[in-house]
């Protein structure tokens, strides 16, 4: 098997910000509960903060380590998943169309995600986030050059 290319390291930061936003309501609830003075100090707050810290700082790093991709002459390989691992290969000859997307957060960090669509029911779209915008554009051009002509 060929070596995998790592995603852009900025992907870790983006994922951290995203998970931080997702855990925010939980943290606020924990602080509110603490403020209400029903339970002894720290019974709720300390575990919640520890858990949130783990989710925000550790998990994105592990996710980043688990992800990777490889482009060869005729196929794109996308590897992902910490607990549920998946290793997908899409031959360029089966790509129907290609998307390059940028959310607001991704744009702030100069990242893009590349999505290739196939006609298959399983893996109808294969998503590869966390690419530097110029890399994503270059990959799109390369894949497109391989698609001989658009049909169907």
């Amino acid at each position: 098997m060929e070596d995998l290319t790592k995603l852009d390291p900025r992907f870790v930061t983006v994922t951290r910000i995203r998970t931080a936003l997702a855990t925010l309501p939980l943290l606020i609830a924990a602080f509110a509960l603490e403020g209400a003075d029903i339970l002894p100090f720290g019974v709720v707050l300390i575990p919640v903060v520890l858990l949130a810290a783990f989710i925000i700082f550790r998990i994105p790093l592990r996710r980043y380590a688990a992800r990777g991709y490889a482009m060869s002459d005729d196929r794109l390989r996308v590897v992902r998943g910490l607990l549920f691992h998946s290793d997908t290969v899409v031959p360029f000859g089966r790509v129907q169309h290609i998307d390059v997307d940028q959310g607001p957060l991704e744009r702030a960090f100069g990242l893009s995600s590349l999505t290739v669509h196939t006609a298959g029911t399983h893996n109808a779209s294969v998503n590869l986030p966390g690419l530097a915008t110029e890399d994503a554009a270059a990959m799109r051009e390369e894949i497109r050059a391989h698609i001989k002509r658009e049909t169907l």
Partner: peptide, 14 residues
């Protein structure tokens, strides 16, 4: 006539 190929593993499978 296949479109893609994926190998997937859950925790127990790994």
């Amino acid at each position: 006539k296949l479109q893609s190929a994926e190998i997937s593993q859950g925790p127990i499978a790994r």
